[in-house]
């Protein structure tokens, strides 16, 4: 089942990037897709961590929320940059991740890094070391709003 969806996605990727729909090129794409799926099947590397099918639907609600968060914090960081006094207060802190799967923790850490103003510096077990540009950013992370949102995303809601 996962192999099938992987194959469909790879073939769609080929069709989009190629843009030429002659029988020969489409045939080569099909052959390449089948070869890739066969190799990953032999390697046993397609499981719910490397090809997280079950998260597909919840991305449609998670990404708009994440993009809105990115916009807000990018605006805040831009205001700090153009301020002539450069009012930064760099803060290092440790936040806990309540996710249960490696995928969930990776999503949380990458979401923290993707929002400007906060960077995940280290991950150890369930604890993420975070560097924040202003101390308000660290306060917001310690409140755990984003943590709860990523946990919801992980459960597929």
């Amino acid at each position: 089942m996962r192999q099938l969806s992987l194959g469909v996605m790879l073939f769609a990727f080929w069709l989009i990037l190629s843009g030429h729909y002659t029988p020969m090129l489409v045939g080569i794409g099909l052959a390449a897709t089948v070869l890739c799926v066969f190799v990953t099947y032999r390697m046993n590397s397609v499981d719910e961590e490397t090809h997280p099918n079950h998260l597909f639907l919840s991305t449609f609600t998670y990404y708009p929320w994440l993009i809105w968060e990115i916009t807000k914090s990018a605006w805040a960081v831009s205001k700090v940059i153009v301020n002539p006094k450069l009012p930064i207060s760099p803060t290092m802190t440790v936040v806990g991740a309540s996710q249960s799967t490696p995928n969930g923790i990776a999503t949380y850490a990458n979401s923290i890094t993707l929002t400007p103003g906060t960077i995940t510096v280290g991950v150890r077990g369930n604890e993420l070391t975070v560097h924040a540009l202003v101390s308000e950013g660290a306060d917001d992370l310690e409140e755990g709003v984003m943590d709860a949102r990523v946990s919801r995303f992980e459960r597929g809601v």
Partner: peptide, 12 residues
């Protein structure tokens, strides 16, 4: 750093 909370907050 102007504020380092690593040691206060880390359980490990």
């Amino acid at each position: 750093l102007s504020d380092d909370r690593r040691n206060d907050r880390a359980t490990d």
